[in-house]
Amino acid sequence: MNAGRTPILAIDSVSVAFGDKVRALDDVSLNIARGEIVGLVGESGSGKSTLCRTLMGLGEATSGTVRIDGEPLADRLDRDRLGFRREVQMLLQDAVASLSPRMRVRRLVEEPLHVHRLPLAAGRARILTLLKRLGLPESSLEKFPHQLSGGQARRVAILRALVLQPEVIVADEPTAGLDVSVQGELLNLMMDLHAEFRLTYLIVSHNLNVIRRITTRSVVMYLGQIVEEAPTAALFRAPAHPYTAALLSTNPVVDPGKRRVRIVLRGEIPSPIHVPSGCRFHTRCPHAQARCRQEMPDLRALGDGRKVRCHFPLAETAGLA
């Protein structure tokens, strides 16, 4: 593996269909380089959960390939399933529910050691170090998951992942359900761990403030497709896809000086069983034209590292491209 060059995760034209009708993911391509922090934004039904599941080998792609260090995921799982699990870890959205309810934290955090047959003494020492590092009291080892607060449960889930010394962490809504006062603590911790262990993050969140603050590149999904991908700062400064623009404009902010003109979209994200013809967003797009109804736009590069799936991208019409 030629580190640095080959993306650690490469998603290449991946589609996932359930039965004949539902296309949960449609031709999704995304490369994530080692050490990158990529944000994934989208509403329910956008396919972001399916993408994560496919990436983690919990579901299979109908077509296309997921590559890890250049090797197809299916091959990697056949050859070295446990090795893959050590390399790529995922934090599930509901941290409390993701901890086996009848086990004490001690057993939960030691379980990865048993599963991967890692040396116990070294592993236990590592757990104690991580416990301190994550700000968890040692007494929490004797607790059951339901005795933990939301923030603590998330730390335990992170600890369980870190025991395996992963290189990539996929985090599904890492701050969902957390109070703002705890949210900052968790994000600080995730950033510290990124610097310390040179982790690669894929962060799925509907919280645009979180995405904006901690990711370097953002991907916006709509109805199974990537509609826009850009460096985070550029994306938030000047969204090119009308959907991105609407999404960003609806983000409520406290500071009146930072409010955008709210673009309220009509209707809701259509069912993946009845995908609109042409551009999938045309039914709700304030700028839709005849061409959008017939012809599906390609995801095309706009320069400055931006890709957009739109016939009439906003930045271009505004003369910013």
Binding site: V115, A157, L164
Partner: peptide, 21 residues
């Protein structure tokens, strides 16, 4: 259930998941 999914993600085998979780 999320905790079963979480066990799969750390690499636990189906037998282990069934019997201990």
């Amino acid at each position: 259930a999320p905790f079963v999914e979480a066990e799969r993600l750390i690499g636990a085998s189906p037998v282990r998941i069934a019997l201990s979780h």
